[in-house]
Design a protein around this nucleic acid. Sequence first.
DNA 1: AATATGTAGAAAAACGTTTTATTACAGGCA
DNA 2: TGCCTGTAATAAAACGTTTTTCTACATATT
Lengths: 349, 349
Amino acid sequence: MATITDVAREAGVSISTVSNVINGTKFVGEELTERVNRAIETLGYQANELAASMKRRTTNNIGVILPNIGMVFFPDVLKGIEAAAKEHGYKIFYFSTDYDFEKEKEYLNLLKTSWVDGIIIDSCCPTGEVSTYQESLAANVAGRNVPVVTLETPFNHKNLGVITLNEVKFTDEAIEYLISLGHREIGILLGPENIPMYSNNIKGIEAALERHGMELLRENIMIGDYFAESGYTAVKKALDSGAQWSAIFSANDQMAIGAIKAIKEANLSIPDDVSVIGVDGIYVTTLIDPPLTTVELPRFDMGYRAGNLLMEMIQGRSRYGEHIEMEGKMIIRKSTEKAAREDWVLTGW
Amino acid sequence: MATITDVAREAGVSISTVSNVINGTKFVGEELTERVNRAIETLGYQANELAASMKRRTTNNIGVILPNIGMVFFPDVLKGIEAAAKEHGYKIFYFSTDYDFEKEKEYLNLLKTSWVDGIIIDSCCPTGEVSTYQESLAANVAGRNVPVVTLETPFNHKNLGVITLNEVKFTDEAIEYLISLGHREIGILLGPENIPMYSNNIKGIEAALERHGMELLRENIMIGDYFAESGYTAVKKALDSGAQWSAIFSANDQMAIGAIKAIKEANLSIPDDVSVIGVDGIYVTTLIDPPLTTVELPRFDMGYRAGNLLMEMIQGRSRYGEHIEMEGKMIIRKSTEKAAREDWVLTGW
DNA sequence: AATATGTAGAAAAACGTTTTATTACAGGCA
DNA sequence: TGCCTGTAATAAAACGTTTTTCTACATATT
């Protein structure tokens, strides 16, 4: 591997001149520039980025820590981040935590060493630890100067960039919508309890129910892991043990798809017997039978804006403490319909 | 940021001693070891990995270049790679090419600089350029000592590690299976023509058809982009213009799911009117109606073995030139059935 | 007793850059 | 002519490690 010294020797100049030619740092005369470029060419020289980064104290790398790339939500987020990163010439270190908080902390530690200029993390921090974890993240930013943007988790600190979804609100709206269709017995299919989204879902649900003088019953809550299979088993088990819902809210589309399978297997029809609403707006929801009513989330855009925010924090040292809340948008398809009972009341059947 | 020099000063030893304590490179007496560790503790010292990597000439990073993380195939591959990487203490630089060959070459170039010890690439190299591209990859390995493992593309070179799927064979088997069910008019839904999988599919199809005295007609081939939407539009268009197939082979499940939607919209029943077989074995294929017959591919395992192969190439400088071919396995579900016509012949309906 | 051997530790070199300080020289001005 | 100023280029320092070389001293060997 040719080094900058080899190039300098070949061109008959000093290494500083070579460096200046390469980086355009200082003016170098036409003749020498030419000689240096020729030397680079003949030697096939390529700078050692590690050495350069070490000296510059900046790597043009960012770290991205996501829970699980197998869930349809995250590849799109990653794409968004990647798009932003590419625009600014950044490379991506990718890690996944599998919702293991210990792994998450381990990776975060790794990234503090020197490999990255900034971090985007979709934390799987358990609800109970949010505030202390937030403090430790923020302290890290202060201590190491490695900016952090968090996704989904509603952190709130002047050192962090934060991008969240209006989870409480769109959950509220989804439930409100089901209620407006006359549903009163609503099954709730959520992710693990210790993930922030869980409590946001709960808040939204309770708000909507309360407005109508209803309350959230423990027995109507099912817990899955955001994968389709878990939605299937949870709903199957509930139906087997006699649950009688006219509608089901699922915290994501994948579980909703599993739920649909279980419902169909119980010889119930969707939406006539049971309405189903999901969250995410993944593409297959348009293809399944019936097409799924869902809350579309701006996945790519979340990633993209997270990337841009992070890079402004890195480069401009600005926008620290910014909190961007993004909107989910309900898309009504064929999996939700008026409740049969309400229908009966209204039409006199 | 405390440096090794600070630690040495704090502990009253030389920096070499600190380095030796940290890395266990040489024996250091109990007393000094203790002092060094205490100094590290009090200063919160964390080594600058960039400096260390530069000196060691190894980064413990690998580069992973995949076409599109949005396709269900790739997240699982990435997970496999990640699992292997984690076991060996490697970090992952992730890039996606969007099937843009220029981007691919650009990223590959980037990785030659110094950031990675090895590369795993699922190349989107156009079929026609495979051999020259293979040479350039191999030359790079020779020149830079950055081992490369390629996925899917049937490269064959002593400098490369290569992991492929038996695409010709499983395609052959899938078609053979359809023929054995009595299907004679088979629609073929493939990915872009310039991707290696395309020609492998074609080979397998032609082999199977030929054994039964049939040939592949141009008009039975539809081209998509591996996403569900493209399968939907392609099949819809074909059906609209009068295609009369009793079965459809799709090069992946996502397109097959799109195809199913189009078939249903045409008021045809699956599998009674049209059988559909896909490739991948993604989870939703078990949930859709009817559950999809498919060829299950060992996605995670491909990634995992690619990772392990690469790391042996990096560390042991062994296993160069190894070619591992992995097997797809047909899973028969409800989307394929005997052809109506053959059925008629056999049963006398 | 004199020399060889081994070893804990320090000093110094090296890795390949960028950046700062220095040099040498040309042009402008009094 | 002599001095100042500006500038193209070089020399040298610095970044933070690992690794090689060296030192000093204790122990073993003849």
